[in-house]
Design a protein around this nucleic acid. Sequence first.
DNA 1: CACTCATGTACAC
DNA 2: TGTACCTGAGTGG
Length: 270
Amino acid sequence: MPEGHTVHRLAAAHLELFGARTVTVASPQGRFADGARRLDGRVLETADAHGKHLLLRFDDDQVLHVHLGIYGKYALGPPPAPAPAGAIRLRLTGEGGYADLRGPNACELLEPGDVKTLLDRLGPDPLRPESDPALAWRRISRSRTSIAQLLMDQAVVAGPGNIYRAEVLFRAGIDPWLTGRDLTEAQWAGLWADLRVLMAEGVRTGRIDTVRPEHTPEAMGRPPRVDDHGGEVYVYRRTGQPCLVCETPVLATELAGRNLFWCPACQFPR
DNA sequence: CACTCATGTACAC
DNA sequence: TGTACCTGAGTGG
């Protein structure tokens, strides 16, 4: 379930489970057998998330790059690791526990130059304190592309995915089809600040909750509800259901191959 | 069992 | 714009 907050949690978890200790590395499924052999027995030195990319650096300066893509999943836990089940591309085991990786978009060893290339093509990550939102604004303010599409472009902003995209636009009351160049700088500042808040909370809790206290079902006098992805949201995957603020049915459409959800009343009529 | 869908990206045309 | 990648969960028969 990978948006940026998940990957930042994974980085922290890797340091906690394996940091500064020897790690056993295997590829039970076999598709990362060569890489696993090269990493086996090394010490994990750093674990970092940049947007949705996880970078694990080992004591011989080898860097493992993992990107979960849309299917990828980690299963982490304390020892002992369970008998391998299903297609496990990568298994790390150590005294602290185990980490099983399935279905990633990328699981590969990177040369130092590759790491730089990777990081250079990412926009600022709201979860990294040093990130500069002005770098994103430079591209957004010149673009004729919709803000909805720009928010999913990892070269513009690194980390947000389809849920944060939909939710942050809803919370700001912004029409998803507003173009980058028609967005005001103040609106961008607001979106960035909200991404920082929401995603940091996502790192803390491991879920995506975006509904403000005044709009919770309890506060609105409605029956309680749980969204199927585990958190509580305004519009993501709520097609046809009443907007939590104004009760207008939530709309959905496909935009650049992904589902986009929005409230046509709270976020401006088209 | 078959089929659909998914919090993503890269490349082809 | 379309399609491949890749795995599991959910649904329907």
